[in-house]
Computed example of a mutant assay.
Amino acid sequence: MSGLVLGFDYGQKRVGVASGQRLTGTATPLATVPNPQLDGWAQIDAVLAEWRPAQIVVGLPLAADGSDTTVSSAARRFAAALGERCGLPVALIDERLSSHEAEARLLADGRRHNAVRRTRDAVAAAVIVETWLAEQPH
């Protein structure tokens, strides 16, 4: 079985995508695509076909207290639809503060705010994948 994991940072307008490797526990931002309800499925299907992962991880947006947010149910529906489309296991993982972590990483790398906005979702997906990988037994 491949050690490749694809992670998704679901958003109402955009979805960040990242790849991760079980062996190294690291992840790399890949792309930001439109939300599937806004014609993003073709791009997501293309990423799945190109990378052929063994596992999918989707960030679950939760409130600071761990309760659902207005986007939580949409993220769960996206995860279920993704699993049905590709026939792979899909794990949901708490993504609290992943976007903030992504922005902090990008700004620390010296990126300007315009560049941060364009790549934040894909970097947040990488944070989600790295978090999931760190929680997996070795």
Score class of each variant (00 low, 15 high):
residue 1 M to K: 06
residue 2 S to E: 15
residue 2 S to F: 14
residue 3 G to W: 01
residue 4 L to T: 14
residue 4 L to I: 13
residue 5 V to T: 02
residue 5 V to H: 02
residue 6 L to H: 02
residue 8 F to S: 04
residue 8 F to E: 09
residue 9 D to F: 08
residue 11 G to D: 05
residue 13 K to S: 13
residue 13 K to G: 00
residue 15 V to Q: 09
residue 16 G to W: 03
residue 18 A to F: 07
residue 18 A to H: 11
residue 18 A to L: 04
residue 19 S to W: 11
residue 19 S to P: 08
residue 21 Q to Y: 09
residue 22 R to Y: 11
residue 23 L to W: 09
residue 23 L to H: 08
residue 25 G to V: 10
residue 25 G to Q: 07
residue 26 T to Y: 05
residue 26 T to A: 06
residue 27 A to E: 05
residue 27 A to Y: 09
residue 27 A to M: 09
residue 28 T to M: 07
residue 29 P to F: 02
residue 30 L to I: 14
residue 30 L to R: 06
residue 31 A to E: 12
residue 32 T to G: 12
residue 35 N to Y: 08
residue 35 N to M: 07
residue 36 P to V: 04
residue 36 P to T: 02
residue 37 Q to E: 14
residue 38 L to V: 07
residue 39 D to I: 03
residue 39 D to V: 02
residue 39 D to M: 11
residue 40 G to I: 04
residue 40 G to C: 03
residue 41 W to P: 00
residue 41 W to D: 00
residue 41 W to E: 01
residue 42 A to S: 13
residue 44 I to C: 08
residue 44 I to H: 10
residue 45 D to Y: 05
residue 45 D to P: 05
residue 46 A to M: 10
residue 46 A to Y: 08
residue 46 A to E: 13
residue 48 L to V: 01
residue 48 L to M: 15
residue 48 L to Y: 08
residue 50 E to Q: 11
residue 51 W to Q: 06
residue 53 P to F: 00
residue 54 A to N: 02
residue 54 A to E: 10
residue 56 I to P: 07
residue 58 V to L: 04
residue 60 L to Y: 07
residue 61 P to G: 05
residue 61 P to I: 00
residue 63 A to S: 14
residue 63 A to N: 15
residue 64 A to R: 07
residue 64 A to D: 12
residue 65 D to G: 08
residue 67 S to N: 09
residue 67 S to M: 06
residue 68 D to I: 02
residue 68 D to F: 09
residue 69 T to L: 07
residue 70 T to W: 12
residue 71 V to D: 15
residue 74 A to H: 13
residue 75 A to D: 03
residue 75 A to H: 05
residue 75 A to R: 04
residue 77 R to Y: 04
residue 80 A to I: 09
residue 81 A to C: 10
residue 81 A to E: 14
residue 82 L to P: 03
residue 84 E to P: 03
residue 86 C to K: 07
residue 86 C to M: 06
residue 86 C to D: 12
residue 87 G to P: 04
residue 87 G to C: 08
residue 87 G to R: 05
residue 89 P to I: 02
residue 90 V to N: 06
residue 90 V to A: 02
residue 91 A to C: 13
residue 91 A to G: 11
residue 96 R to D: 05
residue 97 L to I: 12
residue 97 L to G: 11
residue 97 L to A: 14
residue 98 S to Y: 00
residue 99 S to C: 03
residue 100 H to S: 14
residue 100 H to E: 13
residue 102 A to V: 05
residue 102 A to I: 04
residue 102 A to Y: 01
residue 103 E to C: 14
residue 103 E to L: 09
residue 103 E to F: 04
residue 104 A to F: 09
residue 104 A to G: 06
residue 104 A to L: 10
residue 104 A to H: 13
residue 105 R to V: 00
residue 107 L to K: 11
residue 107 L to W: 11
residue 107 L to F: 12
residue 107 L to S: 02
residue 108 A to I: 09
residue 108 A to D: 07
residue 110 G to W: 10
residue 110 G to E: 11
residue 110 G to H: 12
residue 111 R to L: 15
residue 111 R to A: 08
residue 114 N to D: 15
residue 115 A to D: 15
residue 116 V to P: 05
residue 117 R to C: 08
residue 121 D to C: 05
residue 122 A to W: 02
residue 122 A to P: 11
residue 123 V to P: 03
residue 123 V to S: 00
residue 125 A to K: 07
residue 126 A to H: 05
residue 126 A to V: 06
residue 126 A to P: 06
residue 127 V to T: 07
residue 128 I to H: 01
residue 128 I to W: 01
residue 129 V to E: 00
residue 130 E to D: 11
residue 132 W to Y: 03
residue 132 W to N: 00
residue 133 L to N: 00
residue 134 A to R: 14
residue 137 P to A: 13
